[in-house]
């Protein structure tokens, strides 16, 4: 069975929750485990957050409720696109922005590397995507935006024991 979906939304932090829940809902009919759902939500959240705060440098919002104008008025919102494809039990997610891109993808993917320490970004975003998904590909160049492709086979259960 093949199934696809595509969503496009403004790059504001208010949409982070929406994006991960939408992807989780898309796979829900496959009856994934709670752990798989949580993995997918975390990975999507990381990639979308990266697009918003690094790709579009939209630092407004940043979790300050009720202060100043709404995030969408404050900044020039770019768009983040999520494409999901299910083929059997294989989920593919592509998260794409037209933001400023990165010069050095390898460095960005190093654990603990961050260009925004003042925001207390932990530098664990790509490490989480790698840990929680089965496959991760990042394509980016300066001025050209960033595309993150992730794959996960569903129905495998846990592989990180607590």
């Amino acid at each position: 069975m093949r199934n696809e979906m595509e969503i496009l939304f403004d790059a504001i932090s208010d949409n982070e929750g929406f994006a991960r829940v939408a992807v989780a809902a898309f796979v829900s009919h496959l009856n994934p485990t709670l752990e798989e759902l949580s993995d997918i939500k975390t990975a999507v959240s990381e990639a979308v957050t990266n697009s918003i705060i690094h790709g579009y440098e939209n630092l407004y919002g940043y979790g300050r409720p009720g202060r100043g104008p709404a995030a969408a008025q404050e900044v020039h919102p770019g768009k983040v696109q999520i494409l999901c494809a299910l083929e059997g039990d294989m989920l593919q997610i592509q998260i794409k922005d037209q933001g400023k891109g990165m010069e050095n993808v390898e460095q960005a993917m190093e654990p603990l590397f961050t260009t925004k320490p003042e925001l207390e970004r932990s530098g664990m975003g790509f490490a989480f995507m790698e840990a929680f998904m089965d496959d991760l590909e990042v394509e980016s160049s300066p001025g050209q935006g960033t595309t993150v492709r992730m794959k996960k086979k569903l129905g495998c259960g846990s592989w990180i024991e607590v």
Binding site: S13, E16, G17, S45, I53, Y62, G63, R64, L119
Partner: peptide, 13 residues
């Protein structure tokens, strides 16, 4: 309920 970037600034501050 959800700890993400959207809420992080307010919590830290």
């Amino acid at each position: 309920e959800e700890v993400d970037h959207h809420q992080a600034g307010y919590i830290s501050e």
